[in-house]
Simulated scan of single mutants.
Amino acid sequence: MLSFLPSPQPEASDPPSFASINVAALQTIADPWHRSRLAAEQARCLEAQMATLLQIRRDAVGELVNSHRTPLSKVASHLGLTKSRIGQLAKAALRTLDGGDAR
């Protein structure tokens, strides 16, 4: 079961942060309509955060491989990914720098 530590209360206009999701509390909401709506809202926030995190990782891998000339195998070992995946991420980072869509 997932459980996250609570974070300081965000401003009303701020989306919930990853750490502010209390899965155990969400599971205890009796009304399935309310529970499903809150779960969907949290999922949308997590999806947006995941996309941002993956972009940060892509750019960091691109910097390591393309700028610092770190061997693919070393980056792959550090991140627990294959050399092939590291190559894909590094290439995508270059496309992003060139103004293309990296997806």
Rank of each mutant, 00 (worst) to 15 (best):
S7L: 08
P8M: 07
M1F: 08
Q49M: 11
S67H: 11
A12R: 07
K83F: 01
L72F: 15
T82Q: 12
L64G: 02
R57V: 03
L89D: 05
R44S: 13
M1H: 12
D14G: 00
S17F: 03
S7F: 06
A76P: 14
K91F: 04
A43H: 14
Q88I: 01
H78S: 07
G99A: 02
R85L: 07
A92T: 00
R57A: 13
L53G: 06
P32D: 09
I86W: 01
L89A: 04
A19Q: 14
S13L: 04
H68N: 06
S77D: 15
L64T: 01
G62R: 03
A30T: 11
R57N: 13
L54P: 02
R103W: 13
F18W: 14
L81Q: 10
D98H: 06
C45P: 04
P15N: 05
T96H: 12
E11H: 11
S7W: 03
L64A: 11
Q27T: 04
R44V: 07
G62F: 03
P10C: 09
G80E: 06
L5Y: 10
I56N: 12
A12M: 04
Q42C: 12
E63D: 09
P32S: 06
L72K: 08
T70S: 06
G80Q: 06
A102F: 04
T52I: 01
D59Q: 09
H68K: 08
G80D: 07
L81P: 08
A102E: 12
P8E: 15
I29Y: 13
W33V: 04
R103T: 11
P16S: 06
I56Q: 14
P10Y: 10
L5D: 15
P6V: 00
T96L: 12
R57Y: 11
I29G: 14
F18S: 13
Q27F: 09
P10D: 14
V65S: 07
E11Q: 11
G62Y: 05
T52R: 12
T82V: 03
L2S: 14
H78G: 03
L38I: 00
V75M: 01
R85G: 01
L54M: 12
L94I: 01
P71T: 02
V75A: 02
D101W: 02
P71N: 05
L94W: 03
A102H: 11
R69I: 00
A48S: 14
F4D: 13
N22H: 12
